[in-house]
Design a protein around this nucleic acid. Structure first.
Lengths: 250, 250
DNA sequence: GTCCGTCCTTGACCTGTATCAAATTCCACC
DNA sequence: GGTGGAATTTGATACAGGTCAAGGACGGAC
């Protein structure tokens, strides 16, 4: 969800379960968190299903196990803006707030690991470590949101598309073994053109045009409508308008 | 910093010091936090001064005591986007990350209440309550950032200006006794046209034009360049394109 | 006072993206 | 393999906001 090559460092590969966690994991996180086991349950949603409508009561918080979901805000006249992309290991819902401030919609089939609100809040109070990890994770999200603000406010359509592709490519390169880091990266777009337009603050036609333009210019190759190959990641990053320092890590 | 009338509820009026706190206050927050007293110190910055440059090492975290500061991201070619507005009681800096990801600049003279990083981080580990309050505060900021994403991605120039004025008016109405809540609201713009344009993802000319247009249409009155009167807050809110439900509070 | 510099306003024009309107591709399902 | 429908692409045109340029208002220094 970050525009510039941000450190994905805090991801922890987990021997216990398949997913890579960035923050809280009920299954393998530390002795303190094993207690979460007792209050968790799983829920499955199908692609296109809206898990929670804006304003709805949300009696759980959850971690995405697999699949992709989105957070969107909608204006009265129908204008929509995606404000978050939930990928596996991301967290949704917030302790202390019962109503969702935006729609949460499944883009693909989604599996959530849910915790009922009250027990979870109690656990936060009892388990200092948990609040700290949630804080860390939330700060990461805030940084990502702020980079996205730069994109929405100041980037051109072409830069926006390149930025999104860079994020997806990067995410993909991390999940796959990054065979030859200078080499080509290949992945399937998990979003429709419409979802991309909602994310980028563009129309779907502009998204389509810009993708075509990037293809014409050799920045990406397209196979079908979804399968993308990035021959030169640095080229893509410079199209995205990000500075090339790779992001400062501490 | 929120677009729609959001609950400013968690502000706590404090008998001990002048400012209203939304989250962490070293002076009066609770017994647990009095320990922070020992590691805090004050720093003063003048209007226009940049407190921290993006990428700089930042060996403290701080709470704004008075004045206004901004967080901005800049692209290589100079395009700028403000990603946060720091008002009194807001917090800047993050535990666990030494380098600032954006410039922090004083808009007016600013007084910060600073805590050196290491002691502060130690205190978070030792004081569960502190992490919880920081979490709550960060989640509020994240919500505000996401509302701002809707503004940046989907609102027209006129709506953007109206939204910003609504926020400032609202903030002001909260700080002043809100004498007759239906009545007119009056305040001084704390931002130049340029700063507003950085915040809204517009050019300074467009900001100026839209402010003139709102004045022509009677949505606001202008006295000089900075002093603004809002005769009808509801009118302003509807110009901002926000739904009128007033925001859902829990 | 008046001079200067900064901030703001307004105008004329241009460009990037939205809008409206067809095609075209692709996939799922028969 | 054919068919229907959704997703995507492409084209023509409109318009919001950007860009460039010229004043104007205001405040501080002298």
């Amino acid at each position: 969800m970050s525009v510039k090559p941000r450190p994905l460092a805090p991801q922890i590969a987990c021997g216990d379960c398949q997913i890579r966690h960035r923050a809280v994991c009920a299954r393998c996180d530390g002795d303190e968190l094993r207690a979460l086991e007792e209050i968790k349950y799983y829920r499955r949603f199908e692609a296109g299903q809206t898990l929670v409508w804006s304003g709805d009561r949300m009696d759980f918080v959850a971690s995405v196990v697999n699949g992709i979901a989105t957070l969107t805000q909608t204006m009265e006249d129908g204008r929509r803006q995606m404000v978050g992309l939930l990928l596996p290991s991301d967290f949704v819902g917030r302790p202390g707030r019962a109503r969702a401030p935006y729609d949460v919609t499944a883009t693909t089939d989604v599996m959530l690991c849910c915790f009922r609100r009250e027990p979870f809040e109690a656990m936060i109070r009892e388990t200092p470590h948990l609040a700290q990890r949630l804080l860390e994770m939330t700060l990461d999200e805030l940084d990502a949101a702020r980079e996205w603000m730069l994109l929405l406010g100041r980037k051109t359509a072409r830069e926006k598309i390149a930025s999104l592709l860079a994020i997806l490519a990067r995410r993909n390169a991390t999940l796959q073994a990054r065979a030859g880091s200078g080499g080509t990266i290949t992945f399937d777009l998990p979003l429709t053109r419409e979802a991309m337009s909602d994310y980028l603050g563009l129309t779907l036609e502009t998204v389509s045009r810009q993708i075509s333009a990037l293809r014409r210019d050799g920045v990406i190759h397209l196979e079908g409508k979804r399968h993308i190959t990035v021959p030169d990641m640095n080229r893509l990053l410079s199209e995205a308008g990000d500075d090339s320092d790779g992001g400062l890590v501490d």
